[in-house]
Amino acid sequence: MPVPESILRFEQVVVTYDGVDVLDNVTFTLTAGETRVILGAAGAGKTVLMKTALGLIHPDQGKVSLFNQEITGLREQELFAIRAQVGMLFQESALFDSMTIAENVAYPLFNQAGSQVSREDALARVESILKDVELEHTLDKFPSELSGGMRRRVGIARANVTNPKLVFYDSPTAGLDPITANNIMSLVIKQRDQRNTTTVIVSHRLQDGAMMANYRFNSKTGKIERQVHTAELDQRTKFMVMQKGRIVFEGTEDELHASRDPYVGKFVLQAKSA
C-alpha cells in the first residue's frame, strides 16, 4: 500500500505569548485525504495551531512543513504561493465588512498567488459555490445584513472557491443553535467529499467530530448520509485533543472513546449527555 503524501507536519512546535507557551512541543503529521478533528476547551491553543500551520503566526521553536515545504522562516511574500493551496474558515467568518458577499467570495480568486481568473469565470464560480451553500440570493448583500449562520456559510464558500487541497475550519459551529450547527456541518462534509479535500476542523463539540467521521456526502441523492462504522472508516478521521497548548490525545474515534485520560473523558461524556 502506498504511503499517503504528508500535507502538514508539525515538529516540536512551540509558540509563546507573554512568557506562556500557547503551543507546547506540538508534533503531528496530517496526510492527504485525511480528516483531522481538533478538540479542546477555549484557550487550549486550537486557533493558534491553525494560524501557525498557515504561517500567520511564526513559531518560536520547531518546524512546520506545508505540502512538504518548510514554511518556518519564509517571508510573507514567499508564503502567499503556499497559502494559495489552502482554504480557511475563520472563527467568526472574518468576512470583509466593506465588500458584498460576491466580492468576499471572489476575493481569493482575484488575489491569491498564481490565480488568473476572468471576471465572467469568477462570477460563475462564485454563483455556483454560493448555490452550494444555499445563498445564491445574497450576492449583492453585505455581511452585516446576514445572520451568523449565513455568514459562516459564506465563509465556507470563500474557503473552498479556489478548490484548495487543504481546508481549515476554525470552530464553524461556535455560538450557533443546534439546527444551524448541523446544517453547517453538513455543508463542511459536502465540500470535503465533493472536492476530496484534506480537512482540519477545530471544535469544542465532539458531535461535530463524530459527524465528520461517520457521515459522507452522497452525490446521487445530494444529501449527507450516515455510514456503517467500520475499521476502515474509523481510520479516515483522526481526533486530536488539546489541553493548555499540548496534544493530550491523538487517535481514531474508537480510540478516543476508549481513552482513559480524564480530560479526554470530559469531551466524550459531554457528547453522550448532549
Binding site: 497559502r83 480557511m88 467568526e92 472574518a94 468576512l95 470583509f96 465588512d97 488575489n111
Partner: peptide, 18 residues
Amino acid sequence: GSMKVTEQIDAMRALGTD
C-alpha cells in the same frame, strides 16, 4: 482595529494579500 479584532487582517493574509 476592528478589522484586526475580527480577524479580517489575518483573513486577508490567508487569502493572498499583504
